[in-house]
Design a protein around this nucleic acid. Structure first.
Lengths: 163, 163
DNA sequence: GCGTAGATGTTATACTATATCATCTATGAA
DNA sequence: TTCATAGATGATATAGTATAACATCTACGC
């Protein structure tokens, strides 16, 4: 019998894991998806994705910019923001509004509205997909006649590793 | 038989209503609550609350600052941010992270974790309290061993009046 | 009188994000 | 080939959001 119910989505990011696979998988997936869709995963875009994939934490645009500079990329703000806009637009990354920062998507193969669990101690950000439409909030919205389009769900708290 | 189920919280803000009451009630409640708690609802704080209560929309700190200036208040940024920090800290207002802006709390008498329905057409922000702990997201967090402390839930879409 | 805590005044600065216009390159149509 | 177009990048400037830091004031209790 599984400890985690199969009816709710798990949160990915807190468990210890071979992180190189996250990076490899993320880049490989984006490469294929862009080829399929006729999108250009240019060097700057790929590098920003790699930077984001390098940790399960939210990274600010200006930190990304610093790392691009180290790698010899042009380092004016639009460089980072353009790459981030691209990655967010096509679902390879997400913005954490609460932190004004960005994370790589940890489940790009699944079409989903993300939700985030943010540890205030270690800053790790785990991602899940709660399908809020189905819960109380979805019912409230329907009852009110409100059509949900974009959802921001960001929960701050303490992760299992920091308790 | 009620159209809206009593099991889920309604969204307040989209329905037409006598808005003067929102302002009166909000200020009166805050006045009493501050007296009870030994907090100072100073002129600047009360004025910012009134400004926020003047519409069910999110207002940016610098717009608030402009209105304070018109009213003869000191208009340096810290004036607005300090008042907003106070109002947010004690639950009289909320920050909408997605918009970098603030709204008056529409149910200050209820201890709650708020969720917002934001109309992208008319910018009206309705507030509700979904108790996410009870739904799928709460289960995901518990299964992951994550302790939820602060929730940001902001849904963008189209309100009943704009459809 | 004196210390303290909370509030405000004041100046400066940090952090986040976008506008704008020029340039380059690949592609496909005329 | 030439041209037009779309997408990407280069480069400069600026807009928008938020806080640090330190001085001052005021009310209160001791």
């Amino acid at each position: 019998m599984p400890i985690v119910s199969s009816k709710t989505a798990p949160a990915t990011g807190f468990d210890r894991h071979n992180h190189r696979r996250c990076i490899q998988h993320g880049v490989r997936f984006a490469t294929h998806a862009c080829e399929q869709a006729g999108l250009q995963l240019t060097p700057a875009r790929q590098r920003v994705l790699e930077i984001l994939l390098s940790e399960h934490r939210a990274i600010g645009a200006y930190d990304i910019l610093d790392r691009l500079r180290e790698d010899g990329f042009n380092s004016q703000p639009p460089v980072a923001y353009r790459a981030l806009d691209f990655l967010v637009q096509y679902g390879f990354a997400h913005k954490i509004e609460r932190l004004n920062a960005f994370v790589a998507c940890s489940m790009p193969e699944i079409q989903h509205a993300p939700a985030f669990l943010i540890c205030r101690v270690c800053s790790v950000v785990a991602e899940t997909h709660p399908e809020l439409n189905r819960g109380a909030l979805g019912k409230t919205a329907r009852d009110a006649g409100f059509v949900m389009e974009q959802c921001v769900v960001e929960v701050e708290g303490v992760c299992p590793n920091c308790r």
